[in-house]
């Protein structure tokens, strides 16, 4: 068996793949957080719970109505996005004029409620979600075995991330969005319905989380707690990348996933903490984050 740095290539590339997968989810989730933060100025603590809702939505679609993975990819983000719209309209809206911390506290409370309800109903153990038959199997690349579904997750999330980047940075709608981030009053004065844009942005960010949840279902099981610890890592990712740039979130997400995967190979004890350690170092050197600008 071939080795690199005394590590079997199978193990190395295997962990690299897991790292890329984790990175895909970090990127998707931190992207959603960044988009929401940009316009609403709140940190959506419920993001992990909404990611979990996406996975459960896919699970219900399959087991209650027999609608498979491809349907779930479309329906779950829309359904969860609609709940996001309702949450924004009824609860977040009154908080905009207050300290931003209240938005954090509210969404934290919502996360507790959602996760608690699901844990009550489904317990803490995971439910299996099968890989759709079009994406089963895999390819032997010579140096490693690449399962098709995993390759799909990486490619799909990269595509979604880039599409989001394109929409925000290169389209007219995105230009409104960026303008409203800078100065909502002025944009509103130009006749653009900013409150509706804010609502839809929250819905979109939440939908991204749900989409990540659907894709995660077949890899990690569907469980009420699947988003709870993940969201804290994503917060660290967001602090490292800085929330100023969309591309920054994408690059940091994938990059940190890979670093975490490599840590699992070379020094497994630190694999849980490596992202937090990087966060501490980044804070010391560049407090605004790698791609952020200090306000």
């Amino acid at each position: 068996m071939t080795e690199i740095f005394g590590i079997p290539t199978q193990a190395l590339f295997g962990q690299l793949l897991i790292g890329l997968i984790n990175g895909s989810f970090y990127a998707l989730l931190s992207l959603g957080l960044a988009v929401i933060f940009g316009l609403l100025n709140i940190i959506n603590f419920a993001h992990g719970a909404q990611y979990m809702l996406g996975a459960f939505c896919a699970y219900f679609l399959l087991n209650k109505w027999g609608l498979g993975y491809w349907w779930a990819l479309v329906i779950a983000p829309i359904a969860v996005g609609i709940t996001g719209v309702i949450i924004e309209r009824t609860m977040l809206k009154p908080l905009y004029k207050l300290d931003h911390l209240y938005g954090l506290l509210l969404t934290f409370g919502l996360a507790l409620v959602i996760q608690g309800l699901f844990r009550n109903e489904f317990g803490s153990s995971g439910l299996p979600y099968p890989i759709t038959k079009e994406l089963t199997g895999g390819h032997n690349l010579g140096f490693m075995f690449l399962p098709t579904y995993r390759a799909w997750v990486i490619v799909a999330s990269l595509a979604i991330c880039l599409a989001t980047w394109f929409m925000i940075e290169r389209t007219r709608l995105g230009a409104y969005l960026r303008a409203a981030t800078e100065n909502p009053q002025l944009v509103q004065a130009f006749g653009i319905n900013v409150p509706r844009m804010i609502t839809l942005t929250y819905g979109f960010g939440v939908g991204l989380a749900a989409l990540a949840g659907v894709m995660a279902g077949p890899i990690y099981q569907v469980s009420p707690q699947m988003g709870a610890d993940l969201i804290i890592v994503v917060f660290a990712v967001v602090v490292i990348g800085g929330m100023g740039s969309i591309m920054g979130s994408i690059v940091t997400g994938f990059g940190l996933g890979v670093i975490e995967g490599l840590t699992k190979v070379f020094y497994p004890e630190a694999s849980n903490t490596v992202i937090f350690i990087i966060m501490a170092i980044v804070l010391l050197i560049k407090p605004a984050g790698l791609f952020g600008t200090q306000k």
Partner: peptide, 21 residues
Amino acid sequence: LGAWVTIVQGVIFVVCVLTFR
């Protein structure tokens, strides 16, 4: 009641932030 503690805590959070700051 197990997980209900978490749910009640969450509800208190939401209610406090919305109406009882």
